[in-house]
Write a protein that binds this DNA or RNA. Structure first.
Length: 521
DNA sequence: GGATCCGTTGTAGCT
DNA sequence: AAGCTACAACGGATC
């Protein structure tokens, strides 16, 4: 018996999975072990690094993978918990010389690369004939290692830069589209599981029970809008993108904030596919190609506003996170100006995280994040601007950590990149003085309101009877109106945590001072 | 090498 | 109602 291990890391899917396909096509092996490792370094010793909602999403994604493997292929997902090095030691001991190869996807995070290299070394020491292969172009369209190591690579900072990188790595076809490889279909057959008696897989049920107990929440009953899993991902892709030529071709990101006409307050106005990309239930290549198929049908929007543009920014951050040292730091990070932010202010941070700032739009957005694990991209702009250079003068890293714990689509490269951008500390085009007004008038891109301010009233039900006129600044409503609306500001809903204009003015001056100090160094 | 242009999606106030 | 201007003013690329 010869066995190949297929290690699922951040690509919890069967379609467009080159590591899996390679194992299936390998005639020298007769059994395949699909493996997932629940790593305490990633989720936290007590699962505290991920919100219950993220844990549920991950479990559902694993469950779907396991179910597909067993019901369609007579295989199954082997789930183990622990440090990958220790896990592989156990498995290789158990498989002995029958271990033929290990296939996995390339992961670009510093700790993941370290994991992989030390693992490779240890395995090869044990068994010199084992073939270990890491496959790229899995989580990204570009081959990250290849691009950042090319001679003319420079850190991309704009759509123009990233477009230039695409141009130098892909030819264009007769329609002007980049020639990107088609996604690989799911395999027809997967070879059976090997016999391993000494290592026992965790069942989804056991894992769920254990996690729920540890985080003191029944994670499977967390109110959710995005169910995890490849099956869901492909269903959503079909519903939102594949057949939706008009939607895709007119997609302009800055214009999407108030276009949710579905009548479903939880339904995103954008595709809502990002959670599925982050755990790899959906292949980004497949998404790219489905958009392209729509664009072939006629005139369409262009990067940066189009869906392709959004995915190109995603590639940009993935490259930067690999090529920039200390990508997640504000010191010794060439992509971050070390602004002298205020000390961690627990009161401000809690008000912001819990949606109790007294700014209804900000609070609605933060409560939506807490409940659904998702926020519109412009909402992320608004709340991060508010927390940092706008109103609260807190270090972007504090907000980054909250997002990372709660966002279903959280991704190390993207989350840090977006915070660097929005805090105005990166050399991207975000002038620090360009603030978002958390109390926008009708012309703002942040304006989420139909006439009735439904978005705010849904997420901040304290204000559900408030007249739309005062919905952004309820403290300005006369006391009689507050009483008639069953919400006394300062009692039933907080007063603004800071004075909006004053704080903005002060922070602008602080930012400016920090910059001139940095320049004089 | 100094001037000019440009950058994913701003705001406020005017006509 | 859409479109203009002023605001405040960065920093890298390009010419």
């Amino acid at each position: 018996m010869k066995t190949s291990i297929v290690w699922f890391r951040k690509s919890l899917r069967l379609h467009d999975n080159p590591a899996l396909t390679a194992a299936c096509d390998d005639e020298t092996v007769d059994s395949i072990l699909p493996l997932y490792i629940f790593d305490p370094d990633t989720v936290g010793e007590n699962y505290q690094k991920l919100s219950p909602n993220r844990l549920r999403f991950l479990i559902e994604s694993l469950s779907d993978l396991d179910h597909q493997l067993s019901s369609q292929y007579g295989s199954g997902l082997f789930i183990l918990q622990g440090n990958p090095g220790v896990i592989f030691e156990k498995i290789t001991d158990s498989l002995g010389q029958s271990l033929e190869s290990l296939n996995c996807e390339y992961c670009s995070e510093p700790w993941e690369r370290k994991n992989f290299f030390s693992l490779k070394k240890a395995l090869e020491k044990k068994n010199a004939s084992v073939r270990i292969q890491s496959f790229s172009a899995f989580q990204t369209i570009l081959d990250v290692e290849k691009v950042v190591s090319s001679a003319d690579y420079r850190n991309p900072k704009s759509m123009k830069d990233i477009d230039r990188i695409f141009s130098s790595h892909f030819d264009k076809d007769e329609h002007g589209f980049y020639k990107i490889d088609d996604p690989v279909p799911a395999p027809d057959k997967i070879k059976p599981l090997p016999q391993i008696s000494s290592v026992q897989s965790l069942s989804i049920e056991m894992l769920t029970t254990q996690i729920s107990k540890e985080v003191k929440t029944d994670i499977m009953s967390v109110k959710s809008y995005f169910p995890g899993g490849e099956t869901e991902a492909l269903g959503r892709l079909k519903k939102k993108v594949s057949g939706q030529v008009e939607y895709v071709n007119t997609f302009r990101k800055p214009k999407t904030m108030s276009t949710n006409s579905t009548g479903e307050p939880m339904e995103p106005s954008t595709t809502g596919l990002s959670p599925y990309l982050s755990v790899g239930c959906l292949s980004v290549r497949k998404l790219w190609k489905e958009c392209e198929a729509c664009q072939l049908q006629g005139a369409h929007s262009q990067p940066p506003e189009s869906l392709h543009g959004q995915l190109m920014f995603r590639e940009m951050f993935n490259l930067l996170s690999r090529s920039v040292d200390h990508w997640d730091e504000d010191q010794s990070n060439v992509m971050c100006k070390a602004i002298e932010w205020g000390d961690f202010d627990q009161k401000k941070m809690e008000a912001w995280e819990n949606g109790q700032t007294g700014f209804p739009l900000i609070d609605a957005m933060m409560r939506q994040l807490h409940t659904t694990g998702w926020m519109h991209h412009l909402a992320r702009h608004a709340v991060s601007c508010f927390l940092t250079r706008g109103q609260l003068w807190q270090n972007w890293k504090f907000g980054r950590d909250v997002f990372d714990r709660k966002l279903l689509d959280s991704d190390w490269a993207l989350n840090n990149g977006n915070w660097l951008w929005l805090a105005g500390v990166a050399p991207f085009s975000m002038p620090y003085f360009r603030l978002y007004n958390p109390c926008p008038d009708g012309k703002s891109s942040l304006n989420v309101e139909a006439e009735n301010a439904e978005f705010i009233k849904y997420w901040v039900p304290e204000l559900k009877d408030f007249p739309p006129k005062y919905i952004y600044e309820p403290h300005l409503a006369p006391v009689k109106i507050q009483a008639d609306s069953n919400c006394i500001i300062g009692k039933d809903y907080p007063n603004p945590i800071v004075e909006r204009k004053e704080s903005a003015k002060q922070n602008l001056a602080r930012f400016k001072n920090s910059l001139s100090r940095l320049k004089s160094l």
